[in-house]
């Protein structure tokens, strides 16, 4: 039998608030947001931090859903069929960590990587200007996305976007994304 105790202990030690691996649907996202929101109400006293975590989570989840929309219709039978994704929310003394993971077609990596690097390379003020420029100028897709998600995640968290692309085969890689929402808003105000 699988060592479930060790799985449980690992989850406990890593302070996992929620973890999910499977097909991401809008209903599922809503349920997860509801769970996390009520958990945050219990454990996080600082309104600012609570709102930031919720906001970042909304954008991370929307990114996953949007990614699914870009799938090839013929890919359903592939083991890397990316309607399934990984989501993990953990806490530590530093803050809240949101992790997502999904398969991505190799030829889409470069564009995404350049975009994430660009966001990571600019200052907070430049990020704000970039956000305003895209908000005001870019045409949105039918689903109403325009690449503002990652900028918003970076702005709200004030942190760099951490990511990795792990090669799987000649068509697919696994895209992992991690963002931390620091708890120091609360510490700063209680000093």
């Amino acid at each position: 039998m699988i060592d479930y105790l060790s799985i449980y202990e690992k989850m406990h030690d890593n302070n996992i608030m929620l973890t999910f691996k499977g097909e991401v649907t809008f209903d599922l996202i809503n349920s997860m947001l509801k769970i996390i929101e009520s958990r945050l109400d219990m454990i996080e006293g600082d309104l600012k931090t609570r709102k930031k975590v919720y906001n970042v989570l909304v954008e991370c989840l929307q990114n996953l859903v949007h990614h699914i929309d870009t799938l090839d219709p013929g890919e359903e039978t592939s083991p890397y069929h990316s309607k399934t994704a990984l989501l993990m929310i953990t806490t530590s003394t530093d803050g809240y960590h949101v992790v997502t993971g999904n398969y991505i077609l190799n030829d889409k990596i470069e564009k995404l990587k350049n975009w994430l690097d660009e966001i990571n390379s600019v200052s907070a003020d430049e990020l704000r200007d970039l956000y305003k420029r895209i908000l005001n100028n870019e045409q949105f897709s039918e689903k109403g996305t325009a690449g503002l998600g990652f900028i918003d995640i970076a702005r709200k968290s004030g942190q760099k976007l951490i990511y990795a692309f792990q090669p799987v085969n000649d068509r697919y890689s696994f895209f992992s994304f991690q963002i931390t929402i620091p708890k120091n808003y609360q510490l700063a105000s209680s000093k």
């Binding site: 909304v58 954008e59 929307q62 109403g144 996305t145 325009a146 503002l148 998600g149 900028i151 918003d152």
Partner: peptide, 12 residues
């Protein structure tokens, strides 16, 4: 209270 980035364009 909250709005997502896709709403931000609609609000604009």
């Amino acid at each position: 209270e909250y709005f997502n980035t896709s709403s931000s364009k609609c609000i604009l």
